[in-house]
Design a protein around this nucleic acid. Structure first.
Lengths: 112, 112
DNA sequence: ATCAAATAGTTTATTTTGTAGAGTAAATTG
DNA sequence: CAATTTACTCTACAAAATAAACTATTTGAT
């Protein structure tokens, strides 16, 4: 049967990468901040958590609640971690895209 | 107003790249074949054309019907070509992903 | 002329992803 | 204990991806 694995969606990839980048500090708000900083993409909270939940359901990542922080105030954070399956999927997506980019040249210069 | 441009979906990227790779020979079936060959991804005909249509509607590519071929038999091909906007979008998506991959290491080795 | 085979595109419906936004919860500080 | 800060949950909807059956055009054989 060996069903062919599906590829990750675009946003899913971005979330997994964010989590990897943030390492021990990956939780909802920090992920959101990272995406805004690195690729100037504003994500609504809802978009973020629903997708994270889906990724967890698919077995790409794991989450655990953190303890309360001693910062200013605020609720406990939910930390995320990409697991082996998620890393594998990411790698596959990266490789697929890389092989598709091989020998492709963008001729166009800049655009409005 | 300057609305923030959206990124391309993953499949959209793959299609645009296929078209660039195939250059003058980019039409439905050849695109499908290329994706199967290069990234081992089987795409149904419907998936292909609906997405191509969407990309055209978004102004990322153009299409024109070809003349009948003198091969074996068969209907006329519909040729696709990525335009400046499509190239620009592709480039942006590539760069975004690249910056997200920066300093990210995949530790996992191989998986079932 | 007619029909089978080859090639290729169209249509319709459904599922999966992506998005928005209001709402809820917990902790801190005065 | 109320205001503030931080952060997550829930619900509904839109867009993208996918599937599968169907239609169209051309060639070549009979």
């Amino acid at each position: 049967m060996t069903e062919k694995e599906k590829f990750l969606g675009e946003f899913e990839q971005l979330l997994l990468l964010s989590i990897l980048k943030l390492a021990e500090n990956a939780y909802g708000s920090s992920i959101r901040q990272l995406l805004a900083d690195v690729i100037d993409r504003d994500v609504t909270i809802g978009a973020l958590y629903t997708t994270l939940e889906r990724l967890e359901k698919k077995g790409m990542l794991e989450s655990k609640m953190g303890e309360s922080t001693r910062e200013r105030g605020g609720r406990a954070k939910k930390y995320f971690k990409v697991n082996a399956k998620g890393q594998h999927a990411l790698k596959r997506s990266k490789e697929a895209l890389a092989s598709m980019w091989e020998n492709v040249a963008i001729t166009q210069m800049s655009l409005p």
